[in-house]
Design a binder for these strands. Structure first.
Length: 588
RNA sequence: CGGGGUGUAGCUUAGCCUGGUAGAGCGCCUGGUUUGGGACCAGGAGGUCGCGAGUUCGAAUCUCGCCGCCCCGACCA
């Protein structure tokens, strides 16, 4: 039981200017956090209480899913990362620490880095300590602070530089067992989000930097989210746009039959799809081939799409390069023989095909018959281009960005799109890491195998804000019971009356005995201020004790989610309070 | 990092274009009146106008540089 007057809950009437979205404003206004710098926040007592409840629920559910808690260092020796498989990709987000000590030796190369995640650390541990099939499976997790130099921190805790995350790592003897671990974690995640009372849906996801074989993200639908989710209610399909597939290209599509001879024509000054689609050329965008040049691990490769399609860069991950980027015009011309705008992959037109790491085409180009593409000669294009007859393609794949409205693979219905916030991610990693660092175990036949890994993350501090984003109204936060900083707020309107405070403490004790966390507003403030603050900080159950009510012999009970106020006779107050608490606990 | 914006009291901000005593609301302190949905009256404290140069008799205001923050893009839990 805490007394407001002796606690620390700095609420604000107005939102700070740098907060844009409701949850961010409420984080500040309701006295949950304060900003120290960009993406760096102090958790005030109220915010910390929510965080502790979140971590405890998370801990319970992950343990139920087979997790074993440990704690790894936040600061890592630089050599843990430098030269490792993910270093080229992850170095940009890592904070470096120069090391402490002798000022004369500075500056120098960083000796330490702040951990953005812990795969490298945990595999090192497992390599040393887990060597037999008898030691497996293991699922190690921790809940702690991560550091990532987000290029643009924003939306308060949504994208911070320092944030709290649950990260788990599973180790199994084979793929089948790894899959079991994966689904155990998926169930744990579902249980976690259900207990918070937030809607989080799992969607197919790109494996990104992790480079695993299969992964799903847990998304909270919200307009301010950074990700697009494409989904079909009829079939249940849901995927991050980075990964999404559609039924646009039928599996058994026959190749369009050529109906004309390949023909070169002059297109002076025409370097865009749109310009070529306009008169006098009038080659519709969906009848053009778009040729993009990328650099994968230092070597150029080509991506061929329909003119109307966009490349989904995340899908380049399937090509196996560690780092990819668009090529510069200077890099393009010597290879292709032309500047961007006149590029193509028609057989025999590429100036230096030997320089290419490959020519990858999206399946959708097979929808194009008698198309138009660049001639690899500035100012010239080719028409009547047909995929099988005319184009050089190393391999077909899925590279295009799926748009809303395209048919779902299963149901054929139009895919819908909505924004989401990623709050969790689960991966089957396979043996990518263990192989690289030689994390092997010995089986009962004395054979050595790499351990099969999975890795899992939940953004706890991000989830905290997502709970607010999903649970608030014009007056303030509406906490779900499970994570509310306090469950019961007793507003004593006349704290100078000893009988009012005595009653508050008595009822507070009763509520505590029933298992609720209790806050008593004993401040010498006017009732309006107290009610406004009560709504703002969003405590689920409000109990009002006033001099007026005491004279009538009643107290009031009100849920944050409702406008109704129940007047309870004093004699029944304790029983009613206990019943309300029990009711809320049963629902939570 | 690229593009755009912004920086004035703890918070929200006016003033800047057109240079001349730095203003308001909220919050805070004192006293009084109030007391069931962010009260009222009176008095008070609180500012290197982000930092540094420059122009000028004179700069919050004009110029240049730097820094912080915010928004759009790429990245992520």
């Amino acid at each position: 039981m805490k007394l407001w007057s002796q606690y620390f809950i700095p609420t604000l009437k107005e939102s700070p200017a740098d907060a844009e979205i409701p949850s961010h404003k409420l984080l500040i206004r309701a006295g949950l956090v304060r900003k120290l710098g960009g993406g760096l926040y102090t958790f005030l007592p109220l915010g910390l209480r929510v965080m502790q409840k979140l971590t405890q629920i998370c801990r319970e559910e992950i343990e139920r899913g087979g997790g074993i808690e440990l704690l790894m260092p936040h600061m890592h020796p630089a050599e843990t990362w430098v030269g490792g498989p993910r270093w080229p990709v992850i170095r940009d987000v890592m904070f470096r620490a120069d090391g402490a000590g002798d000022a004369k030796r500075l500056p120098r190369e960083p000796e330490y880095v702040l951990g953005p995640t812990h795969e490298e650390v945990v595999t090192q541990l497992v390599k040393a300590e887990i060597t037999s099939y008898r030691d497996l499976p293991k699922n190690l997790f921790q809940i702690g602070t991560k550091f990532r130099n987000e290029i643009r921190p924003r939306y308060g805790l949504m994208r911070a530089r320092e944030f709290v995350m649950m990260d788990a790592y599973s180790f199994d003897t084979n793929n089948e067992n790894a899959t079991k671990s994966y689904f155990a974690m998926k169930r744990a995640y579902q249980a976690f989000f259900k207990r918070l009372g937030v809607l989080a849906i799992s969607v197919e996801a790109d494996t990104g930097v992790m480079g695993g074989s299969f992964s799903e993200e847990f998304m909270i639908p919200a307009d301010i989210g950074d990700d697009d989710i494409l989904y079909c209610e009829a079939s249940g399909y849901a995927a991050n746009r980075e990964k999404a597939r559609s039924g646009l290209v039928p599996e058994n599509l026959a190749d369009a039959s050529p109906s004309g001879a390949l023909e070169e024509f002059a297109t002076p000054g025409i370097v865009t799809i749109a310009a070529l689609a306009a008169p006098p050329y009038s080659a519709p965008a969906d009848k053009q081939f778009k040729t993009l040049v990328y650099i994968g691990d230092g070597k150029p490769f080509l991506i061929v799409l329909r003119g109307c399609d966009e490349l989904e860069e995340a899908k380049l991950g399937s090509l196996g390069f560690a780092v990819t980027r668009p090529a510069t015009p200077e890099e393009i011309e010597p290879v292709m023989g032309a500047k961007p705008g006149s590029l193509g992959t028609v057989k025999g037109t590429i100036k230096n095909p030997a320089a290419l790491a490959g020519i990858y085409a999206d399946h959708a180009i097979r929808l194009v018959g008698n198309g138009t593409t660049g001639a690899n000669k500035d100012g010239f294009h080719l028409r009547n281009v047909n995929v099988v007859r005319d184009l050089t393609v190393t391999k077909f794949g899925d590279f295009r960005r799926v748009q809303a409205g395209e048919p779902d693979v299963k149901s054929g219905r139009p895919l819908q799109v909505r924004r989401g916030i990623e709050v969790g991610h689960i991966f089957v990693l396979g043996t990518k890491f263990s192989d690289k660092i030689n994390a092997y175990y010995t089986d009962d036949q004395k054979q050595n195998h790499p351990v099969v890994m999975g890795c899992y993350g939940i953004g706890i501090s991000r989830t905290l804000q997502a709970v607010i984003e999903q649970g608030h109204d014009a007056d303030g936060v509406i906490w779900p019971w499970a994570v509310a900083p306090f469950h019961v707020l007793i507003c004593v309107l006349d704290p100078q009356l000893p009988e009012a405070m005595d009653l508050a403490k008595k009822l507070g004790t009763a509520a505590e005995q029933a298992g609720a966390d209790v806050l008593i507003d004993d401040r010498a403030e006017r009732p309006g201020v107290k009610f406004k603050d009560a709504d703002l900080i969003g405590i689920p159950l409000r109990l009002t004790i006033g001099g007026k009510g005491l004279k009538e012999g009643i107290i009031e009970l009100k849920w944050r989610t409702s406008k109704d106020v129940a007047k309870i006779p004093l004699a029944e107050a304790e029983a009613a309070l206990r019943a309300a608490v029990a009711e809320a606990q049963a629902k939570a």
